[in-house]
């Protein structure tokens, strides 16, 4: 879930985790795609802060791309704090 100012992730089957990343902490976003994922047109998104990395696995290729651009555009807007 992506809101104006932060990214919220929910994941885990046995242990449920909810992670909160303020957008102005995001340093860069990566999309990765292995051979298998490429075959099924999937991609994983990695969100990096200065200290941590967060993965959103196996998104649809186009959606990953869209999300990546969306996050980076949000980050740029929010670029007041170094």
């Amino acid at each position: 879930m992506i809101r104006d100012r932060e990214i919220e992730l929910e994941h885990g089957v046995w242990i449920r985790k909810r992670t909160l990343i303020p957008l102005h902490r995001v340093q860069h976003v990566d999309a990765k795609q292995g051979p298998l994922a490429r075959k099924y047109k999937l991609a994983s998104l990695y969100i990096y802060t200065a200290a941590t990395a967060h993965e959103i696995p196996f998104l649809d290729e186009r959606e990953a791309e869209k999300l990546r651009h969306y996050i980076s555009s949000l980050v740029k807007e929010d670029d007041h704090d170094a």
Binding site: G12, W14, I15, R16, K17, R18, T19, L20, I21, P22, R25, T49, A50, A51, T52, H54, D81
Partner: peptide, 13 residues
């Protein structure tokens, strides 16, 4: 607060 890079709350069953 402005130093925290990310915060996770996790919960097992």
């Amino acid at each position: 607060k402005h130093r925290i890079q990310s915060l996770t709350i996790s919960q097992s069953r």
